[in-house]
Structures are given as structure tokens and as C-alpha cells.
């Protein structure tokens, strides 16, 4: 086996093991990319070309009809496009991500640097909110939102996502601030800095990475959410894109290539964020799993 080790470290030489490793990785990559391929080629095919039996064939010519149809809708057929829902999702996800990141930052700061008796227990109580099946709060949630006059609206969805985003954002920031040396805080205290002063002048300026991680994570989760969207918003004109996409998929008459194009449109913003800022996304992922 020492021979194998030596081969491994010899750059450029091709061994059977290497071929197998790359072969396996490529096969896996093809599997993961398969649905994207299908979404893309189906979306690009012209209507005449679309057929479930020939799903895998490349389009003969480029046609953007499916995307246009999914985006703009079809008045004659009575289905509205996803454009409005795309805007709804943006209007929902951006403010909700910002607010919950801000709240998480303040909470995380207190939990990390201003511990008090019972603060660990309280933190655990927050964390439990990360795990509950949301079904267990849906019924009172509908009733309460209605009383708050937030039911069925985008502000209502923002509120819900902020509330149920508190546990994860608090967790990310608490873990981030825990890595800030205590001496830094102590020194500032001796200099007479207040709690808010320390946050403002010491922690906030170095929080950019944590904010990026949190914002990306929250934006992605909120954009992708379906459950709250379907429960809280029932009017098609305020529904987020995931709910509208599902309704599209549930109807007999919307062609499946239009559904595929719609799915790609719904996936695009988070996919772009992932491609551009993937490493921050991965950090959010790790944060969500507590400590390994």
C-alpha cells in the first residue's frame, strides 16, 4: 500500500485509482446535473418539439417561448405569469432577510458576550424553534395574523419569516461573536464603552462576514419556502413564486414545458447567489448544524 501512497503524491502520473476516482466523480456530477439539463433543454424547446418521450434530446433550435409564457402568462388561457410572483418573492425575502439578520446579530451579541444566569437555557429554548415542525404552529398562526391584520399579505409573510428566522440567525451570530476574543471586549469596557458602544464600534464593523452568511442563508430559505407561503397568502397576486409554481404544476392545462421553464425561473435567484457566493452559503449550512 505504500506504493499506492507514493503514486498518489506523484503529480501528473495516471494510475488506475485516479481514473476510478475521476470516473466516479464525473458519473455523480452527471446525476446531479441531470434535472438542470432537463429543465433547461425543455424550456428552450419550441412548443412543437416538446414531448415527454423525447425529453433528453437537445433542442433543434433555440426557442424562448416557454420562458416567455411562464414569465408573462397567457391571457387567453387565463393563467397569469410568474413575473408578479417573482416580484412578490423579492419583496418578501429581501426585507425579511435584512430584519432577521439584524435581530440575530443583536441576540447573538448578547448571548455570546453578555451571558446571564439562564442565558444558556434561554438560548437552547431559541434553538428548539429551529427544529419544530411548523405544522404545530400553523393554526394559531393563521388566527393571530388575521387579528394583526397581516393575514394574506406580503408584510404578513415578512413577519412570519422574521419570527421563525430568529433561531437560526441568533445561532449564526452567537457562534460568530463567540470567536471574538473576550479581552477585546474587556478592554473596551475598561475604556468606558457601553454595551451598545461596544457593538457599534467593535463588533458591528467586523460582522460583515456573518451578515453575508446570514443574509444569503435567510434569503435562500425564505425564497424557497413553500409552507408559510401557501398558508399565509391565498390570493394569487400576493403569492410567492414557489406557491405559484406549484399551482402551475398542479393544473392540467399548463404545458409541462412551461412548468419546467417556470421551475428554472423560480430557481434562478438562489442559484445565482449560490454560484457567486457559494462559500458563504456553505458556512450558513454548517452553522445550521450546530457544532459537529
Amino acid at each position: 500500500m505504500t506504493a499506492a501512497v507514493r503514486t498518489r503524491s506523484t503529480i501528473g502520473s495516471i494510475s488506475v485509482t485516479r481514473v476510478l476516482i475521476y470516473g466516479a466523480l464525473i458519473v455523480a456530477a452527471v446525476f446531479y446535473l441531470l434535472p438542470v439539463y432537463v429543465l433547461l433543454v425543455t424550456g428552450l424547446k419550441s412548443f412543437q418539439e416538446v414531448s415527454l418521450a423525447r425529453m433528453w434530446e437537445l433542442p433543434r433550435g433555440l426557442g424562448l417561448e416557454s420562458f416567455v409564457r411562464a414569465w408573462a402568462g397567457d391571457e387567453a388561457k387565463g393563467f397569469t405569469g410568474l413575473a408578479g410572483n417573482f416580484a412578490n418573492s423579492l419583496l418578501m425575502a429581501v426585507p425579511a432577510a435584512l430584519i432577521s439578520a439584524m435581530l440575530g446579530s443583536l441576540n447573538g451579541y448578547v448571548f455570546a458576550k453578555w451571558r446571564f444566569p439562564g442565558s444558556n437555557a434561554l438560548f437552547t429554548a431559541f434553538l428548539i424553534g429551529l427544529f419544530i415542525p411548523y405544522q404545530s404552529v400553523l393554526i394559531p398562526l393563521v388566527v393571530t395574523l388575521q387579528k394583526m391584520h397581516l393575514y394574506g399579505s406580503i408584510p404578513g409573510l415578512i413577519f412570519v419569516h422574521v419570527v421563525y428566522g430568529i433561531p437560526i440567525t441568533t445561532l449564526i451570530f452567537r457562534n460568530y461573536y463567540a470567536t471574538v476574543p473576550g479581552e477585546l471586549i474587556e478592554a473596551a469596557k475598561i475604556d468606558g464603552a457601553s454595551l451598545l458602544g461596544i457593538y457599534r464600534w467593535i463588533l458591528f464593523p467586523i460582522s460583515v462576514p456573518a451578515f453575508v452568511v446570514t443574509l444569503i442563508w435567510q434569503f435562500t430559505s425564505i425564497w424557497n419556502d413553500f409552507l408559510f407561503g401557501v398558508i399565509v397568502t391565498s390570493r394569487p397576486n400576493v403569492q410567492p413564486i414557489t406557491v405559484a409554481l406549484n399551482n402551475l404544476a398542479g393544473s392540467f392545462v399548463v404545458e409541462w414545458n412551461v412548468q419546467m421553464a417556470g421551475a428554472l425561473i423560480a430557481a434562478l435567484p438562489t442559484l445565482l447567489l449560490y454560484i457567486l457566493l457559494g462559500r458563504y452559503f456553505v458556512r450558513g449550512l454548517m452553522a445550521g448544524s450546530l457544532k459537529g
Binding site: 456530477a29 425543455t42 421551475a263 430557481a267 447567489l273
Partner: peptide
Amino acid sequence: FLFPMAISAVVTGVAWRWM
């Protein structure tokens, strides 16, 4: 390998429903 995590379960559902 990781990108599917960034997209909605609804998108996954629509794609695999047809596949």
C-alpha cells in the same frame, strides 16, 4: 454536488415529477 440545496423543494418536485 451541493447546488440542489440552494433551490426550492418545489422546483425539485416539478423537475422530478416529470423525470
